[in-house]
């Protein structure tokens, strides 16, 4: 009986896997369908816009109250830079996790800070992009391209924002010395979510910005 109650504190799980890690993977699996539906919505309406502006072509569009010829909306260099930054943030967070597992606080705090900065930069890139596209004539309700583009990337951006808040919280905890090696799983779970947000962008970047 005593043996049993001692077990009850941290019962070994049936699979040997950590329960919270199993939960975040389950949640990530569910999120796949969330983004798949948004991507489907973007692709089904690709090329179905009644008016401009369009992603890669010049088109007739309404700007400042009159029909004019609009430039293509996408500007690849900026978003490529943002993509690279997000990819590197994934690299940085595995290094931070590595540091946490080794009990190397300096490494943990340094790389985690870099991750958070990258995340903030990506959000900034997206805000600038939205602002810029809007001034090029692509309002939220201008056409199906605009609506589906802003909705898809906007939801991704929301996920990035939540990830940044989560990782920033972990950073504060790390600075206070509350992420010792035996609690590195807390960071691992946040990192898994962050990588997921990254792989979603790995899909969105070519599908939305590059594909014909």
């Amino acid at each position: 009986m005593a043996h049993d109650t001692a077990h009850a504190l941290h019962p070994p799980t049936a699979t040997g896997l950590d329960t919270r890690k199993l939960a975040i993977w389950t949640f990530i699996g569910s999120e796949c369908l969330f983004f798949a539906t948004l991507i489907s919505n973007y692709l089904v309406y690709k090329g179905e816009s009644l008016v401009g502006p369009l992603p890669h072509e010049t088109s007739q569009c309404m700007l400042h109250g009159q029909m004019t010829t609009c430039e293509p909306i996408f500007e690849i260099p900026l978003v490529t830079f943002g993509t690279a930054v997000l990819l590197f943030s994934s690299f940085f967070v595995v290094l931070a996790l590595n540091g946490a597992q080794q009990g190397n606080r300096k490494k943990l705090i340094g790389w985690l800070s870099a991750t958070v900065v990258c995340g903030l930069f990506f959000i900034g890139m997206q805000v600038y992009e939205f602002y810029h596209f809007y001034h090029k004539g692509l309002g939220y309700t201008t056409n199906l391209f605009g609506s589906s583009f802003y909705t898809l990337t906007g939801f991704h951006g929301t996920h990035v924002t939540l990830g940044v808040i989560w990782l920033a919280t972990m950073l504060v905890l790390a600075i206070r010395g509350k992420v010792p090696p035996e609690k590195s799983l807390n960071l691992e779970i946040a990192a898994l979510y962050w990588h997921f947000v990254d792989v979603v962008w790995i899909v969105i970047f070519p599908v939305v910005y590059l594909m014909r």
Binding site: W25, I28, G29, F35
Partner: peptide, 12 residues
């Protein structure tokens, strides 16, 4: 847990 939903997502 990742691959099965990905398959369903791709099929969708």
């Amino acid at each position: 847990l990742f691959v099965f939903p990905l398959i369903i997502a791709a099929v969708l």
